[in-house]
Design a protein around this nucleic acid. Sequence first.
DNA 1: AGTTATTTGATTGTACACAATTTAGTTGTA
DNA 2: TACAACTAAATTGTGTACAATCAAATAACT
Lengths: 146, 146
Amino acid sequence: MTSTSTLALDNQLCFSLYRAQRLMTRTYQDLLKELELTYPQYLTMLVLWETQGSVTMKELAARLELDSGTLTPLVKRLVAMGLVSKERDIADERRTILLLTDAGAALRSQAEKVPAQIYTLCNSEGLDLHTVKGELDALSQHLSKR
Amino acid sequence: MTSTSTLALDNQLCFSLYRAQRLMTRTYQDLLKELELTYPQYLTMLVLWETQGSVTMKELAARLELDSGTLTPLVKRLVAMGLVSKERDIADERRTILLLTDAGAALRSQAEKVPAQIYTLCNSEGLDLHTVKGELDALSQHLSKR
DNA sequence: AGTTATTTGATTGTACACAATTTAGTTGTA
DNA sequence: TACAACTAAATTGTGTACAATCAAATAACT
């Protein structure tokens, strides 16, 4: 029997979201083990792969909606792994430009397999993942304009 | 124009989930500031409020699907705040029992206001939050049985 | 030019998450 | 009753998140 209290954990959308997100990250973790990337590192690589291998920290932060406190150390690890290099923008020395190394570019072909694998793992009878994605995006849109 | 690449960030359900979860946590953060609780601390208090103020660490971990590495320090903070007390189970000294203090129990009346406030902030034209919750639960169910 | 304001990224400090290991306590069994 | 197997928490170590602050560079203004 489910509690009808408005405070019951099972009645909170937030908890469903929180749990689903953690399960999703764990699912990625297994697949990303082969690439030796964490899940946020993978997201960062996605951005680099879709920007011809060159972005500023500011652009990356805007794309992932993460701040420098998160990204600076994360990128430092990608640099240490040899997937990314960092240099200052000559035109504006405040800016740091991230560049894909050859190893970083090469990793893409391995990463190409991940989306299909994830789809297989997530897809389930009676659940339209595309619809869920749209709803989550709508929720994010709504929450972010405040 | 959206990229049609399967690797494009915008095509990943995972990123929608990841972003929505972070936005939701931030939304809670504002409301919980008054209670001086973080979002995971709030979830922990929800569990205590719905269990007559008494749970073991193991039960709490099972309920929140978090492990002791996360919960031990989190609970330590709740104890330091005077909301929870800890004692050993006399029947089985391996077990730690968490108990609501009077202050912890009293906080519930303030927390009662949160769900309605969150609902107001999340609810949006053309988006059924109850449906979204159900879909996320279905996804979690699917991801956790593997 | 010199001062002020703004921008960019890095740094600091707090709080999760979670894998892996350790410690202490309990149970099952020869 | 030894003692191996198991269980519950705590601990350790790595990697995010994010608020707040800082330093350096640039822009804007007088």
